[in-house]
Design a binder for these strands. Structure first.
Lengths: 188, 188
DNA sequence: CTATTTTGGAACATCAGTGTTCCACTATGG
DNA sequence: CCATAGTGGAACACTGATGTTCCAAAATAG
């Protein structure tokens, strides 16, 4: 619980640990903390100095994930343009989240409803985007906003896995994702 | 490794354990074996009698998963009809796999390539179905078979999660899945 | 160069899951 | 009803992850 603050050096070490944790835990949510420490080029002791318990680390990860999610959502300007183009931009931004994507999706990094609201400036913004799409005829009215959200996440995750499984460039994977989502979402 | 055989009673107990394991491990891949035993209404001792090590149990699960996957694939008759209708039937069948779905997707139940080939009578059958769709104009030629496979799995998984997260009937979830996949896959 | 901060290694107690053994208990079918 | 297959509880040793403490080395600031 107790957060150590500032001092430049501390902040850097802390961030290094968080970044390493994202990378390691994205691949294996049950990885021992020693692995995280190693990945961060830090002693296990040091890791525990910053995050006393495992729960403290995962809490920090959740905060970091929500933060990056917020930034991505803002960059996507989901209030602009047609519903479909907004979704397209959102997917592009989310795609760049990389490991954070896996963490959120794959794992029990269970974001609470409150987290989601914060991330998307409230489900309101996302729901509004979808409804706009329903009205302007670029999004299938049969598909509720919540489902489209599930859709986007699962597709993005599939895309990232695809890069690893098959031997495909990020760019190609993103192309497939966007094409598929557009098709899934658009009016028939 | 040593498999105990037959005798009616044994077979029943064994199956009960396997079924329980599917249910429990689908929700939490790291669940202790005691939980599996409890879910199977069986003592932990008995579980170990049938599956000496955890690895033995997961091996059995893999076999069971491959088996059910095979049956589902056969029922779908993916060699019949247009590419799109075949995919639709396949999705319907896979959807009914339920927890097995989560096990395969969510978890490191990593099916080997050999498993997949067995399950789909070789990637050949699946690839053939997709190519048929490319030719008959019901499947977007831009999307390779491997991607469509990723797509299907991720969507099915999303659908099952959706049932839990939102409060939606299986039927409604399946409807959304089929509609989305059809849209994602069809020619634009 | 000193004082302070920050670090990492080593050693330790603790804990939960695992896998084993042993024995007594229930069924079940001959 | 009796022999046997099947079960489950209790106890145990073992393992790997966790979290703590202590101290000496390294980095940084003054």
């Amino acid at each position: 619980m107790t957060e150590i603050q500032a001092s430049g050096s501390r902040a850097r070490t802390r961030q290094s640990i968080v970044d390493a944790a994202i990378e390691v835990l994205a691949r294996n949510p049950a990885a021992p903390l020693g692995e995280v420490a190693a990945a961060a080029n830090v002693g296990r002791t040091t890791l525990h100095r910053y995050f006393a318990e495992r729960a403290d680390l995962t809490a920090a990860l959740r905060a970091e994930a929500v933060d990056r999610l917020c930034q991505a959502t803002e960059r996507a300007r989901i209030a602009d343009g047609t519903g479909a183009t907004a979704i397209r931009r959102l997917c592009q931004e989310y795609f760049d989240l990389g490991d954070v994507l896996s963490l959120i999706f794959n794992q029990q990094l269970l974001l609470t409803d409150a987290d989601w609201q914060q991330a998307a400036e409230g489900d309101a913004a996302f729901g509004e985007m979808v409804e706009r799409g329903h009205r302007d005829g670029t999004i299938d009215p049969e598909l509720p906003a919540t489902w489209i959200q599930s859709l986007i996440w699962s597709q993005l995750y599939a895309g990232w896995s695809y890069i690893g499984d098959q031997c495909v460039s990020r760019h190609e994977a993103l192309r497939l994702i966007l094409r598929s989502i557009e098709g899934a979402v658009s009016v028939r």
